[in-house]
Design a protein around this nucleic acid. Structure first.
Lengths: 210, 210
DNA sequence: GTAAAAGTCGAGCGCCCACTAGTTTTCCGG
DNA sequence: CCGGAAAACTAGTGGGCGCTCGACTTTTAC
């Protein structure tokens, strides 16, 4: 996660990894994302992932101890990439700027369909308590609701959120809208424009022109 | 689908099924719904379904030719049951009554969590074009959008839908809201009240007190 | 240059899968 | 109450799965 090959160790024997190792890990994670996005975690196979990058299963499993660790690494990487490529701190922006940020986020998501598919299938699978990503999604949604609630609280304090809409409700329903639009969009990408539909949704709960 | 054991055939040899056959089919379909709801289609196994009702796999497969036919039968049965147990013709109701009907539908859904889980996981899996329920969901969403659009058109003609909301957009976003709320609700049933959240959503797009 | 760690692979283990074949058991119309 | 169809079971088949093991190759610190 940090930078280069295990950094400099003080003494001891261990050697750290080769120069190309990190690149290989990334190649694996990219392939895993595609496979999990298409087939889900439960039906996506390590065999398929390995084949996609011309590697043996055993070779792949040298880098990740098992399948669920691989999934965890895929999700970690996505979270890292998201904050790199879309570094918005919604709480900091607050109010109208944060709402605009959400619209930009929806537009950005529309440019990465396989990531959308990944979260769509994994969040559905993850509703089962036995799924390895169950806790991840519980936390993810709790965190998202917290952030969104703060954003809408700010918006309301600015007089920009309708008074009969509670920030908590706005948070829950905004998340629901984003998730729900993704399903229709994945089934038929011409059926819905996620950004415009989300904007229209916001028109129903805010007090300003958007 | 109709009523009793193949009805009366005129002449020929074949004998029709036993008295308990239909009951057994239903038992299988109920078990299949539970398994598919929990594990999805791809990871849900015929073995689990058969075990759940104390039957052998081969015995089960006597009633359904293969796994995907079983899934199709589960979906058929659900559609039949839905129109029996919740026989609302939204188009007929039109306008405010139809909107109320949707709120009742949300409340009804909250009383059948495994059905909600079934559609949640299957619609996510079904976004993949190779999934046996892909066409089913394409059709289902198209039909739903059509019905909802008619409902909101009526509502707008009655002056009950905000003028800056198109019926088509209201249809898409209402479906998205219902789907999205279900995910949060399945992850943590205390996190969201689907009916109230949907009502609040409608407040943003209608012109009357709801 | 070399030794040892890191990376890769082929083979295979035990398990689960959907589905089939053949046989036995259950039902029921006559 | 009996003959034959329907229903159910036992026993497989071929294949995919996650993961392990031991041997081989590549890299790299010294």
């Amino acid at each position: 996660m940090t930078a280069t090959r295990e950094a400099s160790r003080g003494v001891g024997k261990p050697r750290g990894s080769y120069a190309k190792t990190e690149q290989k890990r990334i190649e694996i994670l990219d392939a895993a994302l595609e496979v999990f996005a298409q087939s889900g975690y439960r039906s996506g196979s390590i065999r398929d992932i390995a084949a996609k990058i011309g590697m043996s299963e055993a070779g792949l499993l040298h880098h990740f101890p098992n399948k669920s660790a691989l999934l965890a690494a895929v999700l970690d990487r996505r979270d890292d990439q998201a904050s790199e490529r879309f570094p918005i701190d919604l709480r900091r922006l607050g109010g109208r700027a944060a709402v605009s940020g959400l619209l930009e986020l929806a537009a950005y998501n529309a440019s990465t369909p396989n990531v959308v598919a990944l979260y769509c299938i994994l969040s559905a699978e993850g509703t089962s308590p036995t799924h390895p990503a169950h806790a991840y999604f519980i936390n993810r949604y709790q965190a998202a609701r917290g952030i969104f609630e703060d954003v809408f609280t700010t918006l309301q304090n600015d007089g920009d959120l309708r008074n009969d809409v509670s920030p908590a409700s706005a948070a829950r329903s905004t998340i629901a809208m984003m998730d729900g639009l993704q399903i229709q969009w994945l089934l038929d990408r011409t059926s819905v424009n996620m950004t415009e539909e989300l904007r229209q949704f916001f028109r129903g709960i805010v007090n300003y022109d958007i």
